[in-house]
């Protein structure tokens, strides 16, 4: 990826963001494959086998196949991106990710002209993912992006944090990061990427369409039925940490607003 290709403020502004500690980022996680408590992933993800790891790329691509992570990343430069991360539950953190732009991977796969969406799937391996032995949500976890969202230079396939390999509880060995969307869109431990011409099903939308839309862009003006999205709290600040106002598209409005020009973001939330 070419760092200079990110228009305007996101890249310049990342120097102004203060990342959460490695300890915060790796101890407070939503990864229901390892349990629904925030500490469960850190406690239960140690036994996940992340090497070897294979990712199937299929659908409307010129080079379908099953690739190792190394093959997928071959020839691409891993760069650091410091992004705000905003959970739909109204907490947030700042994470220094290491990864490659998703578009570089997709270009290697050869996206065909009739592809309009990208679908992702998380590993299903209940013997190593104890949360999958319970029906808390349907397994495997699936997510999706519109192709222009997937090709956006901010959209990352992350392989590490703080220069270290991705910790298991954060979605090892490779995960998606879409910083202007609620955290659940940034699917972890990916084993399948499918290019398709129709909007793919996404896990939380399938579970509760009233609460979770396909787009799930961070939007302080569109409330989740159970959480106001007008403000959030950055974790790691202790018992008296103040809330902060949530920014449109999580502060990446300048870069991504044009993707949604003409759309009613209350309807397509």
């Amino acid at each position: 990826g070419v760092a200079g290709s990110i228009a305007g403020s996101a890249f310049a502004a990342q120097d102004a963001l203060v990342p959460n500690s490695f300890e915060d980022i790796t101890s407070y996680n939503n990864f229901y494959e390892f349990g629904t408590g925030k500490g469960d992933p850190a406690a239960n993800a140690g036994s996940l086998t992340t090497d070897p790891w294979e990712i199937t790329v299929d659908g409307l691509v010129d080079n379908p196949g099953t690739y190792s992570v190394a093959e997928l990343l071959d020839g691409l430069d891993i760069e650091e991106r410091i992004y705000r991360f905003r959970c739909v539950e109204a907490w947030a953190m700042v994470v220094p990710w290491n990864g490659v732009e998703l578009r570089d991977i997709l270009q290697k796969a050869g996206v065909q002209s009739d592809a309009k969406y990208v679908a992702f799937e998380t590993l299903y391996r209940p013997e190593e993912m104890p949360g999958q032995r319970l029906p808390s949500i349907p397994w495997p976890y699936v997510e999706g992006l519109r192709l222009d969202e997937a090709m956006h230079p901010l959209t990352l396939m992350a392989t590490g944090i703080y220069g270290k390999p991705m910790p298991n509880q954060n979605g090892a060995p490779i995960r998606l990061v879409v910083p202007w969307k609620y955290g659940f869109k940034s699917i972890k431990s990916i084993v399948k990427i499918t290019l398709t011409d129709r909007e793919p099903p996404t896990s939380w939308n399938t579970i509760n369409a009233r609460e979770y839309g396909f787009y799930s862009n961070v939007n302080p003006d569109v409330d989740h039925p159970r959480w106001s999205q007008a403000s959030h709290r950055v974790i790691g600040g202790g018992l008296f940490q103040k809330r902060e106002p949530t920014l449109m598209f999580n502060g990446y409005e300048e870069e991504v607003a044009s993707l949604y020009a003409g759309m009613d973001l209350r309807k397509d939330f």
Binding site: Y28, K38, G236, G238, L239
Partner: peptide, 18 residues
Amino acid sequence: FFYLGLTGGLGAEPIKAL
């Protein structure tokens, strides 16, 4: 538990934990 929250014993998000 309040003391734990003050001193980091309730993790990265002590408000929700408490």
